[in-house]
Write a protein that binds this DNA or RNA. Structure first.
Length: 195
DNA sequence: CCGCCGATCTTT
DNA sequence: AAGATCGGCGGG
């Protein structure tokens, strides 16, 4: 494990998550700036895939940190996480497109505006061409064409924090983080509570 | 703009 | 049977 991997290792994903904001995710000539993430706190988090311990699906979450955990959501959308070791992970929820935008438009025919290209966890994998074959890829010392880098832009001084989207268990925790004012964020506001 | 609903398939 | 989602459709 390198020093860069150690930046993720066994660290609380609630700390790692805001630090990932403004980093770049690159794949296949396309890249986007990370503008929205959520922390999943492993065995102690009922909303995490790792809550019940290691399984075939979540094996990558229990592998080395700084790797990509990809899973199929609702039978049709791929979602991507950065692993932090020991079942801990950060879900990548939205990107601001930076390079390869034409390729993203081609991959995202449903997007009528560029702000819809990667404004959700399933959309961003589609925009970058990330699928389950990349599950387990090393993001720090890239081995399969997908990587996480910084272009020197630090995380924002102020980060918006809200409850996580689309979960029912442990919904009370504010473990979603996003860049204020960014038009690519999946849902700018705090999700409404159903009566 | 907002809310509802179906698609699709893996996991429990 | 539910799920870390998305997009099309209808209504306001």
């Amino acid at each position: 494990m390198t020093a860069l991997h150690r930046a993720f290792y066994a660290r609380d994903p609630r700390e790692v998550a805001p630090e990932l904001l403004n980093k770049l995710l690159e794949h296949d000539g396309r890249s986007g700036r990370i503008v929205e993430v959520e922390a999943y706190v492993g065995r102690q988090d009922p909303a995490s895939h790792a809550y019940r311990g290691p399984t075939k699906r979540n094996a990558t979450m229990f592998g080395p940190p700084g790797h990509l955990y990809v899973y199929l959501s609702y039978g049709m959308h791929w979602c991507a996480n950065v692993t932090c070791g020991d079942g801990l992970a950060v879900l990548l929820r939205a990107l601001s497109p930076v390079a390869g935008i034409e390729a993203m438009r081609a991959a995202r025919s449903a997007a009528s505006r560029d702000r819809d290209l990667a404004s959700g966890p399933g959309k961003l994998t589609q925009a970058l061409g990330i699928t389950g074959v990349l599950d387990g890829a090393d993001l720090v010392e890239p081995d399969r064409g997908v990587c996480l880098v910084s272009d020197g832009t630090p995380p924002p001084d102020v980060v918006v924090r809200t409850p996580r989207i689309g979960i029912t268990a442990a919904a009370e925790h504010e473990w979603r983080f996003y860049v204020p004012g960014d038009p690519n964020v999946s849902r700018p506001l705090i999700p409404r509570v159903r009566p």
